[in-house]
Write a protein that binds this DNA or RNA. Sequence first.
RNA 1: GGAGAGGUGGCCGAGUGGUCGAAGGCGCAGCACUGGAAAUGCUGUAUAGGGGCAACUCUAUCGAGGGUUCGAAUCCCUCCCUCUCCGCCA
Length: 435
Amino acid sequence: MLDQRLLRENPEVMSEQLRRRGLEVDLRYLQAIALRERELEERRSALQAEGNRIGREVGQRLRSGGRPDDPEVLALKEEGNRVKRSVAELEEEEKELERRLRERLLEFPNVPSAQTPAGTSEADNVVVKLWGEPRRPSAGEALKEHWQILEDLKLIETERSVRIAQSRFVTLLGQAARLERALIAFMLDLHGQRGYREVLPPILVNSASLTGSGQLPKFAEESFKCADDDLWLTPTAEVPLTSLHRDEVLDASQLPLRYVAHTPCFRREAGSYGRDTRGLIRLHQFNKVELYWFCHPEASDAAHERLTRDAENVLESLELPYRRMELCTGDLGFSAARTYDLEVWLAGAGAYREISSCSTCGDFQARRSNIRCKDMDKGKSKGTRLVHTLNGSGLAVGRTMAALLEAGQQADGTVRLPSALVPYFGAEVLGRPSP
RNA sequence: GGAGAGGUGGCCGAGUGGUCGAAGGCGCAGCACUGGAAAUGCUGUAUAGGGGCAACUCUAUCGAGGGUUCGAAUCCCUCCCUCUCCGCCA
C-alpha cells in the first residue's frame, strides 16, 4: 500500500512514480478524499475534547455534593448529548471516506525503486550477469526436454494426474519423487547454513494474509479458495511468511529476520492456457523454497543483494548455468519495488527460464501488514518505522529438477546429477535401477 | 460436534460506571552504589493521528463492532478468537 501522507501532500510525486510503472492515474479525487478525511478527523477530535470536558465537569459537581437534578448539571448533560450527536455525524462520514480511501489504495501497486531501469515490458529487462557455461547439443546430439526424460524413464504420470485432479498437475514416481524431496532438503540445509531460520508455515491462509502481501484484493482469480471458509491455498510461502509478523512491532536490534520455508504453492494460472503445457514448468501445484527477510528500512538495498546471492548460491552449488536479470519498471510484480529474476539454462529447451524472483518490496507489504520496528536509545523508544520486506525463491523446486535433468542427461537416457546432491539423493546418476 | 472458562500494556496480573492509558510485579534502559559485577536504591519505559521550534498538548486505543450514559476497561447485545474437559480424528 502506498503512503497516505504522500497522497495528501504530494500527489504529483506519487502519480509520477506510478507513471514509471506504466500506470496513468489522476490522483486529485483521491487526494481530495484524503484531505477531507483529515479535516473531519480534526473537527471530530476537537468536539470529543469538548465532550470529555463536559463529562469531567459533571463528575466533579456530583462528587462535590451537586444534585443530579441541579439545573446547571442538567444543562451540562444536555450539552453533552448535543456534542455526542455531532461527533456521531462527523464520524460516520469520516469512516466512510477512510474505507473508500483504503479500498482504492489497496488496488495500487508498489512504486518502482529509483534504481529500477525504465521500460515497458519483459523486453526491456536488463541482463546483469551470466554464470556458468550453458550446455549446447554437440554435433548430431539431440537434447531432450525434461518431460521427455521423465517419461522415457517412467518417472512421471501425466494423464493419470488429470484423472486424480485435472490438467497442470503431475505425479512424480520413484527416483523423480525422491529427487524432489532431495532438492527440498538440500535447499533448506543450504540456506540454514547461511543463517536462515527454517519455517514450516500453514499453507491455507486467510484473506487478511493475502491482502497483507499484496495478492488481494486485485488477484483473487489467481488463487484457489476454500468454499466454506475464509481460507485460500497459498500461492507462495511469501504470504504466510509476511503474516508471520503481521501487526507486530519488531525490535530493530534483532533485524534482519531471515526465514526460509518450503511449501507447496498453488496457482490457478488463469490466462495461461496453452503455455508450458508439458512437464514441470507451469503447474497448479508446485514446491518452492522461499527466502524472506524483514529488515531495517535503511538496510534493504544491501539485503536485496544478499538475498539474491543466497538464491544464486543454490544454482551455483547445483552447477546450473544461469543469468541474473533486472526487471524494468514495466515488468515488476505488484508488490515489488525492485526485482532480480534468476533464469536457469534449460539445455533441452535451449532457453533461459525464470527459476527465482528476488524482490525488495520496500515498506509496501509492511504498510499493508502493519509491521514496524522500533529503534531504542538508552531504553527510550525513538519511534517506530515500517520495516522493509524482501522475498525470493531459493528455488522453485520443479523448475530446478527440470534444469538438472536437461543439463545432466546422458546418451543412455540416464541423468548425471551434481555431486552436491549425492548425500541427499543417494546416487550420482538418476535413471539406473534403484539407488 | 457437545459442555464450560476467558480475552487488559513487551510479559504476568489488578481494576467492575467519574482525571484509568490503566495499581502491583517481571522484563528492559539510565543513574547511584562497586575495583568490576551481583544484590540494592532511584528514575524512566505503549501505539496511532493532530497542534507546537520545543517543553508540551489534544484525540483514539483494555479482542472487534454496536448500544445504554453527561461519562464505559467496568453495564447490555452481536461477532471473532483462545483455553479446558468430553467425543471424533493423523
